[in-house]
């Protein structure tokens, strides 16, 4: 069992493409986490904002982060699908 695990680790190290794909997945996950935090912070700010103009700006920013996150999630899904199909 340990030997199998060791061989798999060695295979992963030697497979540059797989390693690169994993790096991309990890990058995207980190970025999505950051964006999620940002969206939450903006939403919290919007809740206590009474100025119409500033509220409109905040809403625009929330919509934008939301759209970016959606794009990121589908990109991550694609990366995961690719990973599963190659394994």
């Amino acid at each position: 069992m340990k030997l199998k695990k060791l061989i798999r680790k060695l295979e992963n190290y030697l497979d540059a493409d797989a390693r690169e794909r994993k790096e991309h997945r990890d990058e995207m996950k980190t970025l999505l986490q950051k964006m999620k935090t940002k969206e939450k912070n903006l939403a919290a700010k919007a809740l206590v904002e009474f100025d119409e103009n500033r509220l409109a700006t905040l809403r625009k920013q929330i919509d934008m982060v939301h759209a970016q996150r959606k794009k990121g999630i589908s990109a991550l899904k694609e990366l995961v699908d690719k990973h599963e199909s190659t394994d």
Binding site: H24, M28, L31, R59, M64
Partner: peptide
């Protein structure tokens, strides 16, 4: 630079912006 590749893939292009403008 470590997150640049991922960030580039989520920036909004003109079609995405049009969709947001239409939705909002």
């Amino acid at each position: 630079p470590e997150l640049l590749h991922a960030a580039r893939s989520v920036t909004l292009d003109v079609n995405d912006r049009d969709t947001i403008l239409e939705e909002t």
